[in-house]
Amino acid sequence: MIESRGVATVAIGLVRPHIEKTRSPRGVWVPFPLGRPFGEPDDKAFQRRVLMQALALLERPQGPVLLEDFPDDAPSMKDRADWEPQVVLPPLQTPTLADSAAWIAGMGAELTSVAPHWEAAKHRFGHTNVGLSRVGMDAWAPYLATFLRGEIPESPVASLSPALVARYIADDMKAFYMEAVQAIGQQPSGLQVNRWFWDGTLAAELLRALRTAALNSENNGFKTAGSRFIVPAPFVAKA
């Protein structure tokens, strides 16, 4: 769409059938997980190889369709055998759906134990994605617990619906934990971090409970956001 308007382009493609079908004038298909078009975090040389293979296509005179494959997997696509999560969590006790006090107390304790790691991760990596909801950490569980009781809370953010705030709190929670657990040590695979979160934290149980509440809700906004945009399909059931 950009090239037909007069500016040269080169596309990175994660899904080969897509890049084949859209017939980008220049493209490099990469074998990395969705979300990682340049392959390997914290590896300048690797990212640069992907970038250079793409940029080199701009020097080629022939067209109109050039499609190459990047030859190598990224190292962190494999689990790191010696990776151990350094976050020590309180013992996991999952409350019943409507027991708001237990959710709030349990989440309070868990967030307190994760918070120092998240601070360290923010310092180590120089950024955080926590903050989309504009709701402070202390208010996450009380707000979500309202949905678990079958009620729809008032949105605390003027331009966002109650369901959207819930969705962004879920995003914030996932980012908070998945950043925190990477604060120390070498790089785990994406799947290792996801398994740690979805298989062992009360936060994950809270998000699963939120999904269940959404499926049973008569509020269409919450039903959609809560059932489809909170828990990824591979983690709907606990391992």
Binding site: R36, G39, E40, K44, A121, F125, P188, V231
Partner: peptide, 14 residues
């Protein structure tokens, strides 16, 4: 929610 954000959490350049 169906793509990896773990790598981005370490390094936005990915």
């Amino acid at each position: 929610i169906n793509y990896d954000r773990v790598g981005y959490a370490r390094d936005i350049n990915v």
